[in-house]
């Protein structure tokens, strides 16, 4: 913001609209990552011969990618028109790209999981298993592109690091959930993924908050700030607990897995809420734009800038 911390505005009215997205969306940001990363874990565990872990991770993957479309359809203003999502394929719309990724991933994961549980689809699974694993990767991170490709300052300006926060969260939740449901003897890869993902998520988040500067303020204030603190606490506590469970303390492994998974959900929710707060206050929208103009780095707006007259705005027109 400007040095005085105040920008001019129209009675403090927002300049851009808050999203109309409902709470299904942050849950989807989580389930997509959980399902996507779990498919990768399942496939690699299978290749390594760890069938116990693989089977469980496939079920988690299916749960994730099956819940996702239900959440997305429920969020639509006209749910009966959900198929319109597949009317076209548009690279300029991460939501379009994501709809196709989720559809393909859902199909592949269903086949892979069915085969893992029954063994009845070995031929289809030969293709479906690696496909599900590979599609799970973009499924976990495209959601960050979706949020960033908007006019909302805190989302748009975090475009370079938000996908890494989401990737870390996806890894943490996939590892954590698998750790919680898999016997210790077979859960080593899940534990490594849970702890590694948790550390990566916290590190990426730290970097992101630092690079955002004042634009990142909504991540620290209000509901988003509280969710963010909760997410960090859950993730850090979960990682420590998961490490402590290494020696065979089952309760610690379960608790650690659940905590990092909850942390990943809370983090998605925090980022989601921060977007609303960023859009709702004109200072986050006007401030950085005005600074760009004053630095001579304007990308748009009114080039033919008129002289500023010495007028006095009414108190209500100043956002703080």
């Amino acid at each position: 913001m400007s040095a005085s911390g105040a920008v001019r505005s129209y009675y403090g009215q927002p300049v851009i609209k808050e999203p109309v997205w409902t709470p299904e969306i942050p849950v989807y940001l989580f389930t997509g990552g959980l399902g996507g990363a779990s498919a990768g874990l399942a496939e690699l565990a299978r290749l390594r011969g760890n069938e116990e872990l693989a089977r469980r991770a496939w079920v988690v993957a299916l749960a994730g990618v099956a819940a996702s479309p239900a959440l997305l359809v429920s969020d639509l203003g006209m749910p009966s028109r959900f198929l319109n999502m597949l009317r076209m394929f548009k690279v300029t719309s991460p939501m379009s790209v994501g709809s196709w990724i989720l559809s393909a991933s859902g199909l592949a994961t269903s086949v892979a999981t069915a085969n893992a549980m029954t063994g009845h689809l070995p031929r289809a699974a030969r293709f479906a298993c690696p496909a599900a694993a590979l599609l799970g990767l973009p499924l976990s991170t495209y959601t960050a592109a979706l949020l960033s490709n908007t006019a909302i300052p805190v989302w748009h300006e975090s475009r370079r690091l938000l996908p890494f926060v989401f990737a870390g969260g996806a890894a943490a939740s996939a590892g954590g959930t698998a750790l919680a449901v898999t016997p210790d003897r077979h859960a080593k890869p899940a534990r490594r993924l849970a702890v590694g993902g948790a550390v990566a998520q916290l590190a990426a988040l730290q970097l992101m908050e630092r690079s955002l500067g004042e634009i990142g303020e909504p991540l620290k204030l209000g509901p988003a700030g509280m969710l963010g603190k909760l997410a960090k606490g859950l993730t850090a506590a979960g990682a420590v607990t998961a490490v402590a469970g290494r020696g065979g303390a089952r309760a610690a492994s379960v608790a650690g897995g659940v905590l990092v998974t909850a942390g990943a959900l809370a983090e998605r929710w925090a980022v989601f809420r921060a977007g609303f707060q960023s859009a709702g206050d004109p200072k986050y929208v006007v401030g950085p734009q005005r600074e760009r103009i004053e630095r001579g780095e304007a990308r748009g707006g009114s080039r033919q800038v008129g002289r500023r007259r010495a007028v006095q705005d009414p108190p209500a027109a100043r956002a703080t």
Binding site: R8, S9, Y10, P282, R290, R299
Partner: peptide, 8 residues
Amino acid sequence: EVYGLPPD
């Protein structure tokens, strides 16, 4: 921004 429009 005085009219509620983004400057850039």
